[in-house]
């Protein structure tokens, strides 16, 4: 059996119905555990005080903001190449979720930045890149909403997603060139663990896993809704023909 079988709406509905409770439950458990661990069971940092604990929201949502766009890019490519409707609908479903993660990342960043840098906002490259990512999400979602025919909308948004990815990537480097910023370097990477000590790192990993599963849960949920909506439209148009 091939992986493309899941691209059949019916098969997808069956499988996702089984996977959904697990993803949701596991996500809730991980997030509950990770956030509790992070917020209540870790010491205040010497340099940052208790403000550092916002990383348990800030870092995972920022990571998921980018991952969601990547997922949309992959789904768009699958739609353009193989024309599986579920793929297009999954990309559509992921966009508002990705936008929400981006906004959470920006807002928590501002809340953290105020005590740390003494300002809510600075045109730091990373902040700017996220703001630009927000704009790309807005455009993508607006285009989906503007076009009536679902297949045309899927085609156009997929093309926009691919072209947008290239330009978002370019913007990232343009912004880096434009302003070398004050953001601390990568707070999480495997060879740079010394940036964040283990005490903070493990609960952060749990939170990230929780956020990933939260994203999966929400995308499955919204894709199912989109499939049902398409099914309803198809049934209605069939009724009109009969």
């Amino acid at each position: 059996m091939s992986i493309w079988e899941y691209a059949n709406p019916k098969k997808f509905m069956e499988t996702s119905a089984m996977a959904l409770p697990w993803a949701a439950g596991l996500s809730a458990a991980l997030l509950g555990a990770g956030l509790f661990w992070g917020y209540f069971l870790t010491p205040d940092a010497a340099k940052f005080g208790s403000t550092v604990k916002i990383i348990y929201l800030h870092v995972p949502s920022a990571m998921m903001a980018i991952s969601a766009w990547m997922m949309m890019l992959v789904a768009s490519l699958i739609w353009l190449i193989r024309r599986h409707h579920v793929s297009a609908l999954a990309a559509k479903a992921a966009a508002p979720i990705g936008l929400t993660f981006t906004l959470i990342g920006l807002v928590t960043g501002a809340i953290w930045g105020q005590p740390m840098w003494g300002t809510w906002w600075a045109w730091d490259p990373r902040l700017t890149s996220f703001l630009i990512l927000t704009l790309f999400y807005f455009g993508y979602i607006a285009l989906w909403q503007a076009i009536e025919d679902p297949d045309t909308a899927a085609d156009l948004t997929a093309v926009l997603c691919i072209v947008g990815s290239v330009f978002a990537f370019l913007s990232r480097y343009a912004v880096l060139f434009w302003n070398q910023g004050l953001h601390q370097g990568a707070s999480l990477s495997l060879d740079k663990q010394e940036n964040v000590s283990d005490v903070y790192w493990f609960p952060l990993l749990v939170c990230i896993a929780g956020f990933v599963l939260l994203f999966v849960t929400l995308v499955l949920l919204r894709t199912r809704t989109e499939i049902r909506a398409r099914r309803m439209a198809a049934l209605l148009s069939r009724e009109r023909l009969a």
């Binding site: 059949n8 709406p9 409707h85 499939i227 398409r230 049934l235 069939r238 009724e239």
Partner: peptide, 18 residues
């Protein structure tokens, strides 16, 4: 003219969702 009894074409159009 296509009616309700038009054979379903696999996976190509909205009929995939029926």
């Amino acid at each position: 003219r296509a009616g309700a009894d038009t054979p379903v074409l696999s996976g190509q159009f909205d009929e995939a969702f029926l």
